[in-house]
């Protein structure tokens, strides 16, 4: 792998008939970076994420994820990434422990690894006493934290987070971001979408998509100064207001 780029995208495009969902997006993401992927509803975020996760084949352009090609090496890509979204989290009718063991098994960890990882995870999340409770009975915030931990259980190179903190209270939201920082610190690249503009500020770099194109890509500080905006909220508003597409 050349230098430390874990995601390399060049003119990545996805067409559905006449409709260009993702239009020639080009960007790199470095190892251990927290990369914010923003855009209004229907701007093409989900389509782009699917291509990067190896779930959907691009129409044209190039991209490598952790050094693997998105056209041909989707199996290797899936082994090297983690994924978590607000909608899909965990199996509600399995216990905390069963969920961790199940996802460990899915990613092919050895039984001993699963055992030690499970204990470590329960310890770290303070869920020791809740280990045998059904996930469905946990508060949303805990579910989301657990869900994130499970997504990085197999120590992936990149973790994709799709609106991970929607509807979570402000304290839990920050605990969640603590976990993101920790993961980034340990070298995992974090690729995150969010509707909370204050969370955009926590990212190292931010891209904003408008109508399928990647309109800007820079650090929050640079973006604010180039748009003469006080907050990321204003930057986003200035860009997305002109959008023609909706979902």
């Amino acid at each position: 792998m050349q230098d430390d780029k874990v995601i390399v995208c060049e003119k990545l495009t996805k067409r559905f008939g006449d409709f260009i969902a993702t239009n020639e997006i080009t960007f790199d993401v470095h190892r251990g970076e927290i990369f914010g992927f923003l855009g209004a509803n229907g701007a093409g975020k989900t389509t782009a994420m699917r291509m990067l996760c190896g779930l959907s084949s691009p129409s044209s352009g190039k991209a490598t994820i952790a050094g693997y090609d998105v056209y041909t090496q989707t199996e290797q890509i899936k082994k090297n990434i983690g994924y978590m979204s607000q909608k899909f989290s965990l199996y509600e009718n399995l216990t905390v422990r069963e969920n961790i063991e199940f996802f460990g098994g899915i990613y092919g960890l050895s039984d001993e690894r699963i055992q030690s990882k499970t204990e470590e995870l329960l310890q770290r999340l303070g869920l020791k006493t809740e280990a045998n409770k059904l996930v469905g009975s946990l508060p949303l915030g805990w579910k989301q934290k657990l869900s994130f931990s499970v997504a990085v259980l197999h120590e992936p190179k990149i973790v994709f987070l799709d609106e991970p903190t929607g509807g979570v209270d402000p304290v839990t939201r920050r605990q969640f971001w603590d976990m993101i920082y920790q993961a980034a610190d340990s070298g995992i690249t974090v690729f995150v979408t969010t509707h909370y503009m204050d969370e955009a500020e926590y990212c190292n770099r931010i891209s904003i998509m408008v109508d399928g194109r990647m309109e800007v890509l820079d650090t929050p500080t640079n973006l604010k100064s180039s748009f003469r905006a006080r907050s990321m909220d204003e930057v986003f508003y200035q860009l997305a207001r002109g959008a023609k597409r909706g979902d």
């Binding site: 855009g39 209004a40 509803n41 609106e163 929607g166 509807g167 509707h195 503009m197 909220d233 986003f236 508003y237 997305a240 207001r241 959008a243």
Partner: peptide
């Protein structure tokens, strides 16, 4: 406004 982007929320 849940799940709606910031512009539409405004």
């Amino acid at each position: 406004t849940t799940g709606v982007d910031p512009v539409s929320r405004k």
